[in-house]
Design a binder for these strands. Structure first.
Lengths: 342, 342
DNA sequence: AGGCATGATTGGATCGTTCAAGTTAAGGAA
DNA sequence: TTCCTTAACTTGAACGATCCAATCATGCCT
């Protein structure tokens, strides 16, 4: 069966030359309408599909997009990349591209993998995730002239956007969360974040601080920084609430810390709060809307991952197809998913 | 830069013919030792990498493995596939393969995608996940003679293993969980599962039932079936405990249902139990060791996903390289990760 | 009718690799 | 010596698509 149909087979059956079939598929406007239809009929009839390897050899284009898949390093947030990947695969397929995976432990080995892949499979472009200050991967790709998009803005050199990027506006998210809490009657709203220095973490903290300040509340002393683990979040929350008993709500940089915050809020040591203000239990809002948030009823900020993935593909496809040199970055807003916790 | 080094370049510099370079790389035993070393030196020096497209055109082998990526349909269990994918990408790379992603909404569209991919990118093999009774995907691939491995045993026709597969022994897992509870002093151990008919669910239930029976405890009446949502799990657990107040532990088919079970066990309506037997709180064990389990301190069964992925690659690679016709399936045992809940 | 521009179609060359067949040189047996 | 075998390497062809340059057909103008 399926004895590999070639363009020559289609040409023979349709009674035209190979080139005409190729034209029908690649530059339909140079072929007469009637011929075009006839060829397309035969294509459907024989189930012809263009052979990527042969096309790639001639054109140098593989129609492959490569992306790294991480081990779910920070467990609780793992499924974020998962959902992004699904969106990417879906959008890519619609634009005629396929997604190729690779792994790498650090920037150095990732760059080595770039060389490997470019030499062997020749992907047309890369999608980089987890961008950070002074990212050597971006510089390397820029140097080689390999097209790529980052999911995550270039944190270091904000001023010069030397490559297209897509990101989710973390500050806008925490700002919305903070406003939501203000509207609900909270005023002393704390923040559980990561240590200063990570672009993502600082950005999210900034949205909270700005919104509090706009409401006339001084955010100083209301923030705690810790690593991204549930236990750390619980300890930080407890510390914050102990030091400022007026705190009635927490905005968190991640669902991990938010779950820790929830534990602290419900812990026996804080029973007095529930008794004092039963009308206003400690509210908690997380970030990323992970399955964990869904499971424990945590209000959280949801990243529009499907849209982000679609934007990545669109930017990359435009860079590959046309001769677009510089492209406007895309900044998307997360949405608040309200559950029991706030 | 990086002006695409071809096998002819290597041949010229090394002072041999193209074919000899090819032989050095593919069949080193037919080349004299000295020549071999000289060619390899040049290969390293020039940074030559074999062009997949050209090789594929000649040999018909793409060194690509295709796998579907799902939207995380059942949220809480989402990251299972994620971890499996990472392991697969990693193992595949070690064997000289790359992983290609695709999406599909159902079996029919997945088969259409098979045709698309086989016509265009010609992946050497597929890894199928989420196998079920009478899976048309397996039949289709068998019919076409396309190599594939399933992660998940062929539930329908257990007797005849017409293709290699890898699976995790769910029954062994729930049996281990049940034994763990028996050892801890529990005797009336309930089971929260899915409705009969899903291979995976029935298998997991069977391990629990068998172990209870072996301990001289009649499992009938101790099982509840429901769909895989936290709220459903909570309701089912409540129903079970209400109808049999002697129940002190729950083995669950998934972490989703287990989280529901935890909620029920801690709910105010069951306070009487805590008062009656404060020494023996209701224990709960889940399945899949998802991030949620880690976050809420749920004891759960962890699938050896990395090993499963490695086995898939190994089976597939052997089917592709050698002329192995039938291959022994691989059945791995999950391990119990003990946390606070049991 | 002849010339000419325009559009549609064709044949040959090419991408980088591997397969199949061929060449060369060295060694051994008759 | 002559023939044969074998190891080591080389040469030409082919995979299936697209690019390029050339050819053919058509209609229009003079």
């Amino acid at each position: 069966m399926a004895d590999k149909v070639t363009i020559a087979d289609v040409a023979r059956v349709a009674g035209v030359s190979r080139q005409t079939v190729s034209n029908v598929l690649n530059t339909p406007d140079v072929v007469r309408e009637e011929t075009r239809r006839r060829v397309l009929d035969v294509v459907g009839e024989l189930g012809y599909r263009v052979n990527q390897a042969a096309r790639q050899m001639r054109t140098g284009r593989s129609r492959l997009i490569a992306i790294r898949i991480d081990p779910d390093r920070d467990g609780i947030n793992g499924s974020v990349l998962d959902r992004f990947l699904h969106g990417l695969t879906d959008s890519a397929a619609r634009s005629g591209y396929r997604v190729l995976l690779y792994t790498a432990d650090d920037d150095r080995t990732e760059i080595a993998t770039f060389e490997d892949l470019l030499g062997a499979y020749e992907p047309d472009g890369f999608v980089l995730t987890g961008t950070h200050h002074q990212d050597p991967r971006a510089s390397w790709l820029l140097g080689k002239g390999v097209p790529f998009v980052t999911f995550g803005r270039p944190w270091g050199e904000e001023s010069e956007a030397r490559h297209p990027w897509v990101d989710v506006d973390g500050a806008a998210g925490t700002a919305a969360a903070t406003r939501h809490l203000l509207d609900a009657g909270h005023s002393r709203i704390g923040f559980l974040g990561w240590p200063t220095g990570s672009g993502v973490g600082d950005d999210r903290r900034e949205g909270w601080a700005r919104t509090l300040a706009e409401a006339g509340i001084d955010p100083s002393g209301l923030s705690r920084a810790t690593s991204d683990a549930v236990a750390d979040g619980e300890a930080a929350a407890r510390d914050l609430i102990d030091s400022d008993p007026g705190v009635t709500a927490l905005v968190c940089v991640s669902d991990s810390l938010a779950v820790g915050g929830l534990h602290a809020a419900r812990s026996p040591g804080l029973a007095w709060r529930v008794d004092t203000r039963p009308d206003l239990p400690i509210a908690v809002i997380g970030f990323d809307d992970t399955p964990v948030a869904k499971a424990v009823g945590l209000t959280s900020l949801s990243q529009p991952l499907k849209e982000a993935a679609a934007s990545c593909v669109s930017l990359l496809a435009r860079a590959l197809d046309g001769t677009q040199t510089s492209q406007a970055p895309v900044l998307l807003e997360p949405s608040l998913v309200v559950r029991q916790s706030a």
